[in-house]
Simulated scan of single mutants.
Amino acid sequence: MRKKVVVVTGASSGFGKLTVLELARRGHSVVATMLDVEGKSRPVRSELIEAAKAEGHALQVLEMDVSDDASVTLAIDQVIAQHGKIDVLVNNAGLMPIGVTEAYTTADVERLFAVNVFGAIRTDRAVLPHMRAAGSGLLVQVTSLMGRFTIPFFGIYCASKFALEALAETYRYELSSFGIDSVIVEPGPFPSNLISASPQPSDAGVLASYGEVAAIPGQIKANSDQSFDPANPPRPQRVADAIAKLVDATERRPLRTVVMAEGLDYGVEQINAAVAPIQNGILKSMGMEHLI
């Protein structure tokens, strides 16, 4: 198996943290990126480096704010200067707002999309010239089951993940002739800090007008952990393992990989299977069958 240079965004916690450790464990040259590496994220930076070192692997941590063009460019330039290439980009950084959709202002939604959507576009655009020059590469976009269906009070989160799904699939077609693969990982519900860190909607007036309905998002957040069996909680490591499997793959990768906790099935595999022939049929009708 060829060892690869892999950049992972949002690596300070959750899926990102587990993914960088798993990839380092498999011998890849991993660059974990996160916010505030000299401040709030300093402890996790040390933890990641020490954990990898204890197993005899190297792991690098760099500052990157995916919502800032200059920060993304600087980090990617550093990786290229040191390693000469980037084989894989894992776009994992993201936020999960839970609230009354109408109460999120335009500015609220722009802040979310700056990370969940434009953040991926920024990092993709930063690495793709290097991948095209090399004639190979892999983009992994971490979306969600809620990139394929919607749940009340997760409206703008779903919108951001739907957008990321469309972006990733379009890359799949447009980049294939350059030897670059674009794939999507769709995690189901796993324990994480996303719900507890949910950005609140700013329009208090709209919230007040919703009466008792406005309390539902708070109830969702308060009860989020109670849906998991404490004796056998879902293992987020399954997501890291799925990403690592895609990175290691030598044959053609599937466009979408659904990652669920054991025993759960929300039907997204069926959605993907039902939509694929329709999507492929559209491309065939437009004379683009060679891009499938």
Results as ranks from 00 to 15, higher is better:
residue 132 R to H: 04
residue 219 Q to A: 13
residue 284 K to N: 14
residue 104 Y to P: 03
residue 65 D to Q: 06
residue 203 D to Y: 09
residue 17 K to F: 14
residue 26 R to Y: 07
residue 292 I to Y: 11
residue 130 H to W: 11
residue 150 T to N: 13
residue 289 E to L: 09
residue 39 G to M: 03
residue 81 A to F: 11
residue 45 R to N: 01
residue 56 G to R: 02
residue 9 T to E: 03
residue 111 R to I: 00
residue 216 I to S: 09
residue 6 V to L: 06
residue 251 E to W: 01
residue 265 D to I: 00
residue 248 D to M: 08
residue 110 E to I: 09
residue 99 G to Y: 08
residue 205 G to E: 14
residue 180 I to N: 12
residue 273 A to P: 01
residue 114 A to E: 14
residue 275 V to C: 08
residue 108 D to Y: 08
residue 120 A to W: 09
residue 170 T to V: 12
residue 25 R to S: 13
residue 71 S to A: 07
residue 203 D to V: 03
residue 88 V to R: 12
residue 147 G to P: 00
residue 169 E to H: 03
residue 210 Y to D: 05
residue 120 A to M: 13
residue 115 V to T: 15
residue 100 V to D: 05
residue 279 Q to G: 05
residue 96 M to A: 15
residue 9 T to R: 01
residue 24 A to H: 09
residue 19 T to L: 08
residue 139 L to Q: 03
residue 110 E to P: 00
residue 28 H to Q: 10
residue 81 A to Y: 12
residue 255 L to K: 04
residue 217 P to T: 08
residue 222 A to R: 13
residue 86 I to P: 09
residue 251 E to Q: 14
residue 291 L to D: 08
residue 88 V to T: 13
residue 280 N to V: 01
residue 159 A to R: 03
residue 220 I to H: 10
residue 26 R to W: 05
residue 91 N to H: 13
residue 28 H to F: 11
residue 242 A to D: 08
residue 55 E to Y: 01
residue 156 I to R: 09
residue 42 R to H: 13
residue 32 A to L: 08
